[in-house]
Amino acid sequence: MKLKKIGAAVLATAVMLGSIGIGDVYAIEQQKNISVYTNNHIITPFWSEIINILPSISASGNAINPKVYIEAKSPSASIIGTMYLEKYSSGRWVNVTSWSLKGTGSLSSSKSYSGTLNTKYRTRVVVTINGETAEAVSAPCET
């Protein structure tokens, strides 16, 4: 009987979700861009020059390894930017250190940093490709 109820709950919920409509139920699309505050200007990226930004971070003990891969739509596009290592402290993300990025068409960067145990870190990247600026943040990683 329990299985019956569970199954019926599944069907009922599925139909209920379906009857409301895809647009209503799953309308979780975030209607904003990530804006970048730099040099007293708010820059909203258009992604007309960028194919992919791939920030990531991994940790082994207190050794932290922030990485990023950036790819432009044009193989001759100029890419400049900064990769930031941030840690979570007192309820907010604060900058720990940063590295400059520069390349053409695509670039990758992988760095090492000796961090503090039991601390959350993340990689943040601010990049400009042919004058178009965008920001990307990795998932957090705990040492």
Binding site: W47, I50, I51, N52, I53, L54, P55, S56, I57, S58, Y69, E71, K73, S74, P75, S76, G105, S106, A134, A136, V137, S138, A139, C141
Partner: peptide, 23 residues
Amino acid sequence: NNYILTVKLLIPLGEIKSYYDTE
């Protein structure tokens, strides 16, 4: 003619976030 092709292979050791143009 400057067409590009990229193949990425990633071992998902943690959550990997990939930002892609989907406009």
